[in-house]
């Protein structure tokens, strides 16, 4: 049973300025399912709507972001709910940290610079649990120990720690209440390769220990290759391809996915690599038909007029491209 089901989600940024309104169609008709206990990756370039998707799915919807259509339902072991129908902030707050938790982007700067790390942990724990101080300490100590962090960090201020350390503490903070689902938004971006590897190592460890579901958003295909079970590739507000990570990397069906994978250089291979021509479109005024057609080497007349739907091509591999339909 899928723990998270998203159906035809449309999340737009709508602003009104000087009598003119502008709409950024950041997430435009996205559907997917995430199974319990899996690592589901969402890949795409900056401005493709992946962070907006994460916000909408985790219920962090604030103007100018608006949900125009769609359903986001969670099926936890003991309850099911549609997060978009919750209109009371208290109800949402009850979910956060315990049921769903977010490892935010730019963890370098999410910790309060004038409070010791301990205070941040106190905030998170006491907001959700009614525990005594000694219980709190025991809980944090166990958690830190499991993650290989030292108790002494509790007494430090964020500026005393390196970027990688702060990132690990942010991850520890987001997972201390053992959430059912963890959303991670670019958790390794802006980190050095060695630290990045440490963070990936840590995320894997938490997942194994707490048996939760992880939704990982990053533009870095190599991180997806290293962590994910299934992967969705987004382009201009839509999912263009989704499938098992092995299949997707060895046999990508959408021209955008193969272009993205072909442009990645590797250590030990200096054969020429080209990048995709053109640039991602603006989401204010996306191109008609298939949104990738202006950059696609296989664009046909039909692609300019009609938008392809995400269709299953077998083995839970879904692709939104007319080339796949033509073959069937």
């Amino acid at each position: 049973m899928a723990i998270l089901e998203v159906k035809n989600l449309k999340a737009y940024y709508i602003t009104h300025k000087y009598g003119r309104s502008s709409t950024v169609r950041a997430v435009d008709g996205v559907s997917f399912e995430v199974n319990k206990n899996e690592i589901y990756g969402i890949a795409g370039e900056s401005g493709c709507g992946k962070s907006t998707l994460l916000k909408a799915v985790s219920g962090l919807v604030k103007p100018p972001l608006q949900i125009l259509d769609g359903e986001v339902s969670y099926n936890f072991s003991d309850e099911s709910l549609n997060i978009l129908s919750l209109n009371d902030d208290r109800q949402r707050r009850r979910l956060r940290g315990v049921r769903i938790s977010l490892i935010p982007q730019g963890s370098m700067s999410v910790l309060n610079p004038v409070r010791r790390i301990r205070k941040s942990f106190e905030d998170v724990v006491y907001a959700h649990l009614d525990v005594s101080e000694s219980e709190f300490e025991e809980m944090v100590r166990d958690h830190l120990q499991a993650l290989g962090l030292d108790w002494t960090v509790m007494h430090t201020y964020p500026h005393q720690l390196s970027g990688g350390m702060r990132q690990r503490i942010t991850i520890a903070l987001s997972t201390i209440l053992r959430p059912d689902i963890i959303f991670a938004d670019e958790p390794t971006t802006a980190l050095d390769v060695v630290v990045q590897r440490g963070v990936v190592q840590l995320i894997k460890k938490i997942k194994e220990e707490q048996q939760n579901t992880l939704i990982l958003v990053t533009h870095d295909m190599s991180i997806h290759a290293n962590l994910c079970d299934r992967l969705a590739v987004m382009y201009a507000g839509e999912i263009v391809e989704e499938g098992d990570v092995q299949t997707l990397f060895s046999n990508p069906k959408h021209p955008y996915t193969s272009m993205l994978l072909n442009s990645l250089p590797r250590v030990g291979d200096s054969s020429p690599r080209a990048s995709a021509p053109g640039a991602p479109p603006s989401l204010v005024d996306p191109p008609p038909g298939c949104r990738f057609h202006p950059r696609c080497p296989f664009a046909m007349e039909r692609c300019r007029k009609e938008a392809p739907l995400l269709r299953d091509v077998g083995n839970r591999h879904r692709v939104a491209c007319f080339l796949q339909e033509g073959g069937q």
Binding site: S162, Q196, A225, N226, L264, V267
Partner: peptide, 25 residues
């Protein structure tokens, strides 16, 4: 260490060994 920590864009080639991290620069 640096070379082996470059993630390969290939799901068949994942990191298996754990590494030690520096704590204080």
């Amino acid at each position: 260490l640096l070379q082996s920590s470059v993630p390969a864009p290939d799901p068949r080639d994942r990191w298996t060994e754990d590494i030690a991290l520096s704590d204080l620069e």
